[in-house]
């Protein structure tokens, strides 16, 4: 079993001016080469947990620890297109690469690598506002990959893309895991989670309602299961009530 690189222990978080907890006593551990599927209805706390893992927020109780390497590179790919659509693909990549504390040679190498990995060659000089949703998603991921991450946090990376792009992105995620990256994959698409994730963590109302490796979860426990698929498992733990 590969070593744990990032762990959240008994994490608790409440947003200012909110009465209820966004996250309550959440535990998770991420290993190199592992893809953890982070599932949950809207408002369940998935994005909050990702923001704690990437260091944008600090837990009010519990801890998020980088294990073995204090300089662990954690990259975050947000759900939104978090770049400059008025700039070209090349200009965006160059801008974000220029912010990294690496040598110009290393910067150029990383740019070449992410352009190849995300198949962006033919769009390099095109303004992103004129590109398709699929290209924009690939650029969003490419910017995250510029950091050469040990841990990659993907927040719904396939929203609004065509099936071809989705298949491509899922294959890229598997490839990154094979190369040793630990990946958190937040999604609403159960088939995607089934396709790429080894482990699953289901959040609801800020609490972990199910977690473990996918095969074990599908077999069920004494009180519930077995489940025909991940969707059945998900609906069992989160119920059918519509969320805000």
């Amino acid at each position: 079993m590969t070593p744990v690189v990032l762990a959240a222990e008994a994490v608790r978080y409440r947003y200012p001016q909110q009465t209820s907890l966004a996250l309550e006593d959440v535990n998770l551990s991420l290993r190199r080469g592992e893809i953890l599927g982070l599932l949950g209805p809207n408002g369940s706390g998935k994005s909050t947990l990702i923001n704690l893992l990437n260091g944008l927020r600090e837990p009010q109780a519990g801890s998020v620890r980088r294990i073995g390497n204090p300089h662990l590179r954690v990259a975050w790919v947000p759900q939104e297109y978090a770049y400059y659509p008025q700039l070209t693909c090349r200009e965006n990549l160059h801008f974000f690469a220029s912010l990294l504390a690496v040598s110009p040679q290393e910067r150029a190498t990383r740019m070449d690598q992410v352009v190849k990995a995300c198949v962006l060659d033919e769009f390099l000089d095109k303004q992103l506002r004129h590109c398709s949703g699929g290209v924009r998603r690939r650029v969003n991921i490419a910017i995250g990959l510029l950091q050469a991450p040990d841990v990659l946090l993907l927040d719904e990376p396939t929203v609004g893309v065509d099936p071809q792009t989705r298949v491509f992105l899922l294959e890229q995620v598997r490839q990154l895991a094979r190369q040793g990256a630990a990946i958190v994959y937040a999604t609403h698409y159960m088939d995607e989670a089934m396709a790429v994730c080894n482990d699953i963590l289901i959040l609801d109302h800020g609490r972990v309602v199910a977690s473990g490796d996918l095969a074990t979860l599908l077999k069920g426990t004494a009180g519930a299961g077995p489940f025909a698929n991940l969707e059945a498992l998900f609906m069992h733990y989160t119920r059918r009530l519509l969320r805000d």
Binding site: G55, W76, E80, A82, F96, L99
Partner: peptide
């Protein structure tokens, strides 16, 4: 701010 680019810049150490 609305696209999350400011937050992303923060994760780049800006």
């Amino acid at each position: 701010r609305n696209d999350g680019t400011l937050a992303r810049l923060s994760t780049f150490g800006v």
